[in-house]
């Protein structure tokens, strides 16, 4: 059991380390691209791809950033109801929440991949990028959230065994 927990925990940590760097690059890129958009339009000639790239960086930042928020428990939730219970029940609610989330993520990952399969032809208007690459952010980021959920669940199980305390 401890091995399973350690595995998911480590996987979740390492992925998050990587995603944090990726998100930093995305946001820095977003600042750079949007600034260039203004500078080039005003002082030189307008860039043809900057608006589209900004939007796609925002989408990527959104979904990968959402994995970081998920790992840190930052997504907004109503907690007053489950706060009313004891530790054990709260743990169970937490496991249930993670399972429900995994259900949602899995469906979106599956259908996101279906969508990508159907979009082999579509290209983006300004950058002429295949849309499938841009769409990849959805299944990939939701897979990462599944990893974080599994890590969360396995920690709760350890907690049960040790009498309600999360290690």
């Amino acid at each position: 059991m401890n091995k399973v927990v350690d595995f998911f925990d480590l996987l979740s940590q390492k992925t998050d380390w990587l995603v944090t760097r990726l998100v930093f690059v995305i946001i820095a890129g977003l600042v750079l691209v949007t600034t260039s958009q203004v500078v080039f339009r005003v002082f030189f000639t307008a860039l043809s791809w900057s608006e589209e790239l900004s939007r796609y960086l925002l989408v990527w930042g959104t979904f990968f950033g959402a994995t970081m928020a998920y790992k840190r428990g930052n997504h907004i939730a109503l907690t007053f109801f489950i706060e009313a219970f004891g530790k054990k029940v709260k743990s169970m609610f937490n496991i249930l929440m993670n399972i429900l989330s995994i259900v949602f993520f899995s469906f979106v990952v599956y259908y996101g991949s279906q969508m990508i399969k159907m979009q082999v032809f579509q290209i983006s208007p300004a950058l002429s990028l295949p849309m499938k690459y841009i769409y990849y952010c959805i299944p990939v980021s939701l897979c990462i959230m599944i990893i974080h959920s599994l890590a969360g669940i396995s920690k709760e199980f350890i907690g049960f065994r040790n009498g309600g305390e999360v290690q």
Binding site: R41, T45, A46, S48, W49, E51, E52, A126
Partner: peptide, 15 residues
């Protein structure tokens, strides 16, 4: 974009 660039216009692609 290229049509308007060819006309010497500062072509701004924008939503």
């Amino acid at each position: 974009i290229d049509t308007f660039k060819a006309l010497g216009v500062n072509a701004v692609p924008m939503a």
